[in-house]
Design a protein around this nucleic acid. Structure first.
Lengths: 232, 232
DNA sequence: ATTAGAGGATTGTTCAACGATTCATCAAGC
DNA sequence: GCTTGATGAATCGTTGAACAATCCTCTAAT
């Protein structure tokens, strides 16, 4: 009975991979990648004809992909004007951090009852980030940092929280483009993350929460300062 | 200067009404209504041709409407099979309540710093619900109850939290269909809501939070019991 | 310098068509 | 009797074209 339950669990887990065939979703994947890594900077207009020819899909399919990404808040659709890569306003950044505070502090509090391997997963992403820093790959440090924070909310073991968090962080990447040097933005937080992970493993979730909140305050302030400087 | 700010505020508030020209959104509104009120029960398959003819729109427009509602988690899209009215599993109900616990308890804690009119708004929806109960309109009691809970998370003053909460509650309505009598499900909570609102206004957010958590526990248990009974 | 208008380009929407996939039916084999 | 495999109908996925509506740019006139 447990053996069969195992099959069932693994098979149903593999199911979404099989469904991954829709052309619109594939196009959305490509565009999402380019938006996130900055190839398509915020404000860029995505012409239907140009991109359609470039990717070899019809306008209808392309528009469907645009809609998918609009729902993820990565593109904005303006009636009769087209779709643009989202430009995050300062208010958006503040709102994203507000929501992160709620979800991630809840995650830290859930660490007490979460399975130990989930807590270890948090630490794993810290190590990942430090390794990337040593090789000077600051973009990789950034993604490791995001995985670290996603691992924190993963302690809640809630699919909906996970998805919300993933979307929030993808959106936040749009804001990172205003930071000139990735290094100055990511490097200082490596230590913070390590400290928080240690506190979580030690079970001192109260101090972990305080440190996390402090991180939010400084990171948000840093981003907003960069925004003010650039007058966005 | 303030006069101009007034114009600006009022105009930008009226803007979404103007944009409401998309055929797909109108179609989505109709379908949403029918899904929520149970005319289209969970599991129903929505044929593109049938519904397209019924509403007199092209398949493309209809597909866009489907996508809108899929994103709201009211429909599910299965590749090459079509779209279906979402069937909420017991695990989904549990997950929705997990997320509500996080967001709404955060809302209660934010009541301390929230503007007084926002707190009064919470109480207003309690009164609404009681009025609806007196006239025996239990569906209206249900919507008032949802507005009550949305008002709680509105204390956080975060657009993203508001939207997440709205989607969660719309999704949850799909689960209400398993409850036979709406009255037995909604009536007991009128008192709870009133008590919580009073505690919020009095500033006793600690007790308010405890009461809210207790409400979640019983409401969730009641729903899950109904699920188990019907073997869904 | 500002405004008004014409023209071109792009998006919004629909339609028809064809290939791809699923589902139900039915026959063959163990 | 049950499973396996093939057949055909129904439906979805995608494309391309067409036309209307809207926006943008450029020119010309005041």
């Amino acid at each position: 009975m447990t053996a069969m339950a195992d099959w069932a669990a693994r098979l149903s887990a593999a199911r979404p991979v099989l469904d991954r065939a829709s052309a619109a979703e594939l196009v959305a994947d490509v565009l999402r990648e380019n938006v996130i890594d900055g190839s398509l900077p915020p404000g860029t207009r995505l012409s239907e004809e140009t991109i359609g020819n470039l990717l070899g899909v019809s306008r209808n399919t392309l528009r469907e992909a645009f809609r998918l990404l609009s729902h993820e808040n990565l593109l904005v659709h303006e009636l009769h004007r087209g779709v643009f890569v989202r430009k995050l306003a300062a208010a958006d950044v503040a709102d994203i951090y507000a929501m992160r505070r709620i979800l991630e502090t809840a995650g830290v509090r859930a660490a007490v009852t979460a399975p130990p391997e989930a807590v270890r997963e948090v630490r794993r992403h810290v190590d990942e980030g430090q390794a990337a820093a040593e090789s000077g790959d600051w973009a990789a440090v950034g993604t490791a940092n995001m995985r670290f924070h996603r691992a924190i909310t993963a302690l809640l073991a809630s699919p909906r929280v996970d998805e919300t968090m993933a979307r929030l962080l993808a959106e936040l990447r749009l804001a990172f483009h205003v930071m000139g040097e990735l290094r100055t933005f990511h490097e200082p937080y490596l230590e913070d993350n390590a400290r928080i992970a240690t506190l979580l493993i030690d079970g001192d979730h109260e101090r972990a929460e305080r440190e996390l909140v402090a991180y939010f305050d400084t990171a948000e302030a840093q981003l907003l300062a960069a925004y003010a400087e650039r007058g966005v």
